[in-house]
Design a protein around this nucleic acid. Structure first.
Length: 828
RNA sequence: GCCGAAGUGGCGGAAUUUGGUAGACGCGCUGGACUCAGAAUCCAGUGGGCAUUGCGCUCGUGGGGGUUCAAAUCCCCCCUUCGGCACCA
C-alpha cells in the first residue's frame, strides 16, 4: 500500500474497471425490485458547472446506495439538446448548431465521466436526434387528432431579442426567462397544447403527491393554476346591441351582487366598439383605449399604477336590484381572464372602491362586519371580509358565506347564470419561430387545410443546409426544399409549417424514453416502461418548479390518454436541490466567482469534490462554496488513507477473523458500539437524503478509530471492523477511494455490487450508558449506568449522587421524572 | 397584498422526525510539538460573561408571552430575511 493518497492514480483506474465490467448497464428484471433515479438532464452548453455537479452527485450517491440495498437501479443521462444558444452560436460564429451541440456533448460527457457517475451510458439520448424527435412529432399529430393540440391566432408573448414567442410560464416579471428582454404582446397564429384539459387532474394529483414532493413546489404549481370558484352572472344591457342583449361576468363574490353599482370591461374587449358606436362618448373612449393599448404590460400593472377608466355611455341592469348601472372601460380589467368584463362592487372590492372614489360612483354596502356599521360616505377602504348580509332583499340577515351559496342557487334557478370555476392556467403555446427545434409536423394545403404528417412519413427532419442570418423570421421558412411539399391527403402542392416546438416539449417525456431508448417499433416499449416507470426519485433545481415540472406532468397525462403509457404522474418523489453560491451570490461569469470543476478535480480528485458538495449543506438549501472547505474534505480522505496505512500490518493479519466480544478491552467495546451506531446513523441519513450528517458521522468514526489503541491481539478484529465499515459507508459519496482501499484490504469483489453493510442492534445498545441528572430542569450531574437499569434503579442512583445531594441539601424532592436510558429530573 | 420557507457560535451547519446534556461534524482562529525556517502533519483549546485554587456558576437558539418537571423543538403575538404569485374580479 502506498503511503499517501493520490487520487489521480486510483480514479482513472477504477472508472476504467467499472466501465469494462459494464456494471451500470441494467435490464428489466422482474425478479428484482426496480428503483429509477433521475437527475434533470443538462442543456449541452459546453461546460459542466457546480450546480450540475451538485445535482448529479446527489443522484449518483442515491443510485449507488439503492443498488447496495438490492434494487435494480436505472440511472440514465442524456441531453436536452435543442435550444437557442446553439442557433446563436451559428449566427455569431458560423458554426452549425448540430456541430456545436454534438461537440459540446462530447466535452461535457468527458467531464461527467471524470466524476465517476454510475450512469448507464448505453441509454444516452440527445433530443436533437431525429430518432428522438420523430416520436415527439408523432405525439403531436396524435394530440392534434384528439383535439389536444390546436392552432389559434391570439395575443402572444414575443421576445424581441430571441425573436420568438414565449409561453406564459416563460415570462417572468414581464421579461423573457432566457435573456431578460422585455416581452412584447403580439397578435399571432400558433400551435397550442391543451394543458387546460387537465387542470383539475393536475390539481387533484398535486394533493396526492404531497408525500413525495416539496410543499413549496406544489404550492407554486397550485398558485400558477390559480383556481377560483364563483359564478358567471348575466347582466341585461339597457339597449340591445344587434342580437346581443346581455353581458356575462365572472365573480368569486356572488354574495356581493346587490352591491354592484357599475361594470367595467377591458380596453381590448370587442364589445367596447359596439357599446360606444354613435354615442357622444365614442371619441373619448377610443382615445382612452388607444392610450392604454400602447402601454406595455409592465407599465399597466406597475406598482401603484392608477386605476383609470372612462364611461361608455351605455348602461346595464343589475338583475337583483333592477337598477341601471353605468358601463365603464377600465385599465385594470384583464381581457384574458374570465369574460373580460366585471361587475363592480366598490363597497367590497378594493380596486372597485378606488375606481369609484376617483369617478364618484355610488357605493352600496351589502355586507356588514360584526359590531361596526359601515357607512359608504366615510369608508376608507373596501370591506372584503365575510359578514352579515344587508340591503339584499330576501338574502338580508344571512351570513355572507351562506348567502353566497343561496344566491348562486337562485341564479341557476332563474336562468341568470351558473356556478363557475375559473383558472389562471392557459393552454401551452409551443410554436417557436426558430430553427434549432423539433419541426411541427403539419402541412398546409389550400384544399384540405392543416394536415398532420402521417406516421409513416415521420420524422420531418430538420434540413441541415441552411443559412443563419439572425434576421427576418423563422430560418426554416427560407428553405424552399423544406417548405414546398405535397398534401398527404390530396397530393396537391402544399407548404410545411415552419415553426418549431418549444424545447420544453422534449423534456416533457424524455424520462419515459430512457426505459427503451433505442426502441424503433413505437415511442415506448410498453413492458419496459411499465417496469421502470414512474421515476422513483427525481432531482433538480427549484427553478423548474412550474415550467418543466408542470409541462412534464401534463404531457404524461396526455400520453396516457393517447394510449402510449399507463402513467398518471411521472415523478413519485421530487428533490429540489439548492443553488451553489459563492461570496453570497450565484456563481456567474459576470460576477467572476465561478469555480471550475475541472480545476478542482485536477487538484483534489473527483471524490473530494463529490464529498465536499454533499457535506457542505443540506441538499435542499443553498450551498456556499468554500475553497477551505474543499481542502477540509481532501484532508479527511487523506486521514482515512493514512489511518489504514498506519494500521495496515495489524489488520492484515486478522482478515476474516470474528470479533470475540467477551475477550476485547473496554475501549474496543466502545469502538465497536460506535461502529454499529455509525452504520445505523448513516443508513438512516442516506434514506432521508441527509448526506451532510451521514458524512459527519463517518468523520466521527474516523476520529474515534484514529484515537483507538488496541489492547492485545483480540482487539485487532475490532479495529479491522471499524476500518471496513468506514470504507463501505463512504463508498456512495467517494466511490473511487473506497474501492481502492477495499481492494487494499485484500478483497477482490467490487463495492458497486456489494450489499449494504448492516448493523447489529445489540451492539448499538452499549452496556454502559450515560445518564443525565437534572435538578429543576438544569443539568447538574451525570452518572454511568447499565443500559438495562430500570426506572427505580435510575431514580435511586440519581438521588445518591454526591452532587445531587449537595444541591438538594436535605430538602425532600417534590417529584422525580425518569426518562429511561436518558435522564432523571429531580424537582425540589 | 396573498401563499410558502427560514432565522442557532467568527463561518457552513448539528440537534426539530420522537420536547429530555444546545452547538455534533467541518472551516476559521489561538497555543503547542516537529523544522534552521516554512509548508504539510500531529496534539490541545475555541458561544458570551463571571470564577479561575479546584469543583464550577450564570446567560444564551430573531423578539415578547404561554404550556410543561423540562422548549431551538409545541401554542399565541410580533420582527427580519429569502422564494413564489400578484389589478385573476
Amino acid at each position: 500500500m502506498k503511503e499517501s493518497y493520490n487520487p489521480k492514480d486510483i480514479e482513472n483506474k477504477w472508472r476504467k474497471d467499472w466501465d469494462e465490467k459494464k456494471l451500470y448497464q441494467v435490464e428489466v428484471d422482474n425478479n428484482k425490485e426496480k428503483y429509477y433515479v433521475l437527475e434533470m438532464f443538462p442543456y449541452p452548453s459546453g461546460r459542466i458547472h457546480m450546480g450540475h455537479i451538485r445535482n448529479y452527485t446527489i443522484g449518483d450517491v442515491t443510485a449507488r446506495y439503492k443498488r447496495t440495498r438490492g434494487f435494480n437501479v436505472l440511472h440514465p443521462i442524456g441531453w436536452d439538446a435543442f435550444g437557442l444558444p446553439a442557433e446563436n452560436a451559428a449566427i455569431e460564429r458560423g458554426v452549425h448548431p448540430a456541430k456545436w451541440t454534438y461537440e459540446n456533448i462530447e466535452q461535457m460527457k468527458a467531464q461527467l465521466k471524470k466524476l465517476g457517475y454510475s450512469y448507464d451510458w448505453t441509454r444516452e439520448i440527445a433530443t436533437c436526434d431525429p430518432t428522438y424527435y420523430k416520436w415527439e412529432q408523432m405525439v403531436f399529430t396524435h394530440m392534434y387528432q384528439k383535439g389536444l393540440a390546436y392552432q389559434k391566432s391570439t395575443t402572444v408573448n414575443w421576445c424581441p431579442s430571441c425573436e420568438t414567442v414565449l409561453a406564459n410560464e416563460q415570462v417572468e416579471d414581464g421579461q423573457c426567462w432566457r435573456c431578460g428582454s422585455e416581452v412584447e404582446l403580439k397578435e399571432m397564429a400558433g400551435w397550442f397544447l391543451k394543458t387546460t384539459e387537465y387542470t383539475e387532474e393536475l390539481l387533484e394529483w398535486a394533493d396526492k403527491l404531497k408525500d413525495g414532493w416539496p410543499e413549496r413546489v406544489l404550492s407554486m404549481q397550485k398558485n400558477w393554476i390559480g383556481k377560483s370558484t364563483g359564478a358567471e352572472i348575466e347582466f341585461k344591457l339597457h339597449d340591445t346591441i344587434g342580437e346581443e342583449d346581455i353581458v356575462k361576468v365572472f365573480t368569486t363574490r356572488p354574495d356581493t351582487v346587490f352591491g354592484v353599482t357599475y361594470m367595467s370591461l377591458a380596453p381590448e374587449h370587442p364589445l367596447v366598439e359596439e357599446l360606444i358606436k354613435g354615442k357622444p362618448e365614442e371619441e373619448e373612449v377610443l382615445e382612452f383605449v388607444n392610450r392604454v393599448k400602447k402601454q406595455s404590460n409592465l407599465e399597466r400593472v406597475a406598482d401603484g399604477a392608477k386605476k383609470e377608466g372612462v364611461f361608455t355611455g351605455a348602461y346595464a341592469i343589475n338583475p337583483f336590484t333592477h337598477l341601471s348601472i353605468p358601463i365603464y372601460v377600465a385599465n385594470f380589467v384583464l381581457f384574458e381572464y374570465g369574460t373580460g368584463i366585471i361587475m363592480c362592487v366598490p363597497a367590497h372590492d378594493q380596486r372597485d372602491f378606488e375606481f369609484a372614489k376617483e369617478y364618484n360612483l355610488p357605493i352600496r354596502v351589502v355586507i356588514q362586519p360584526e359590531g361596526v356599521e359601515l357607512d359608504p360616505h366615510t369608508m376608507k377602504e373596501a370591506y372584503v371580509e365575510p359578514g352579515v348580509m344587508v340591503n339584499s332583499q330576501q338574502f338580508s340577515d344571512l351570513e355572507s358565506a351562506t348567502a353566497k351559496e343561496n344566491i348562486v342557487e337562485f341564479i341557476e334557478q332563474n336562468g341568470l347564470g351558473e356556478k363557475q370555476i375559473n383558472y389562471r392556467l392557459r393552454d401551452w403555446g409551443i410554436s417557436r419561430q426558430r430553427y434549432w427545434g423539433t419541426p411541427i409536423p403539419i402541412i398546409y394545403c389550400d384544399k384540405c387545410g392543416a394536415v398532420p404528417v402521417p406516421d409513416e412519413d415521420l420524422p420531418v427532419e430538420l434540413p441541415l443546409d441552411i443559412e443563419f442570418t439572425g434576421k427576418g423570421g423563422s430560418p426554416l421558412s427560407k428553405v424552399e426544399s423544406f417548405v414546398n411539399t405535397t398534401c398527404p391527403d390530396c397530393g396537391d402542392p402544399a407548404k410545411r409549417e415552419t415553426d418549431t416546438m418549444d424545447t420544453f416539449v422534449e423534456s416533457s417525456w424524455y424520462f419515459l424514453r430512457y426505459a427503451s431508448p433505442k426502441y424503433t417499433q413505437g415511442i415506448f416499449n410498453k413492458d419496459e416502461v411499465s417496469y421502470w416507470l414512474s421515476v422513483d426519485q427525481y432531482i433538480g433545481g427549484i427553478e423548474h418548479a412550474i415550467l418543466h415540472l408542470l409541462y412534464a406532468r401534463f404531457f404524461t397525462k396526455a400520453l396516457r390518454d393517447l394510449g402510449m403509457c399507463d402513467l398518471d404522474e411521472p415523478f413519485k418523489n421530487l428533490l429540489t436541490q439548492g443553488m451553489v453560491i459563492k461570496d453570497g451570490t450565484k456563481m456567474s461569469k459576470s460576477v467572476g466567482n465561478i469555480v471550475d470543476p475541472d480545476d478542482m478535480i485536477a487538484k483534489y480528485g473527483a471524490d473530494t469534490v463529490r464529498l465536499f458538495i454533499m457535506f457542505a449543506a443540506p441538499v435542499n438549501r443553498d450551498l456556499d462554496w468554500s475553497d477551505e472547505g474543499v481542502e477540509g474534505s481532501f484532508r479527511f480522505l487523506n486521514r482515512v488513507w493514512r489511518l489504514i496505512f498506519d494500521v495496515y500490518d495489524k489488520i492484515e493479519q486478522v482478515k476474516g477473523k470474528q470479533v470475540e466480544p467477551s475477550k476485547i478491552s473496554k475501549s474496543a467495546k466502545e469502538l465497536l458500539t460506535k461502529v454499529h451506531k455509525t452504520i445505523k446513523k448513516v443508513t438512516d441519513d442516506l434514506d432521508r437524503f441527509q448526506f451532510n450528517t451521514a458524512i459527519a458521522a463517518v468523520m466521527e468514526l474516523l476520529n474515534d478509530t484514529s484515537r483507538f489503541k488496541p489492547d492485545g491481539q483480540d482487539d485487532l478484529p475490532v479495529l479491522r471492523e471499524a476500518v471496513e465499515a468506514m470504507i463501505r459507508l463512504l463508498y456512495p459519496m467517494a466511490p473511487h477511494v473506497s474501492e481502492e482501499l477495499w481492494h487494499e484490504l485484500g478483497y477482490d469483489n467490487t463495492l458497486v455490487d456489494m450489499q449494504w453493510i448492516t448493523w447489529n442492534e445489540e451492539l448499538v445498545q452499549s452496556a454502559a450508558i450515560n445518564i443525565v441528572i437534572q435538578i429543576n430542569g438544569k443539568v447538574r450531574s451525570q452518572i454511568t449506568m447499565d443500559s438495562d437499569s430500570d426506572q427505580d434503579q435510575m431514580k435511586e442512583a440519581a438521588l445518591l449522587d454526591e452532587k445531587v445531594q449537595s444541591f438538594i441539601a436535605g430538602k425532600e424532592p417534590k417529584k422525580v421524572i425518569v426518562v429511561p436510558k436518558r435522564l432523571v429530573n429531580i424537582v425540589v
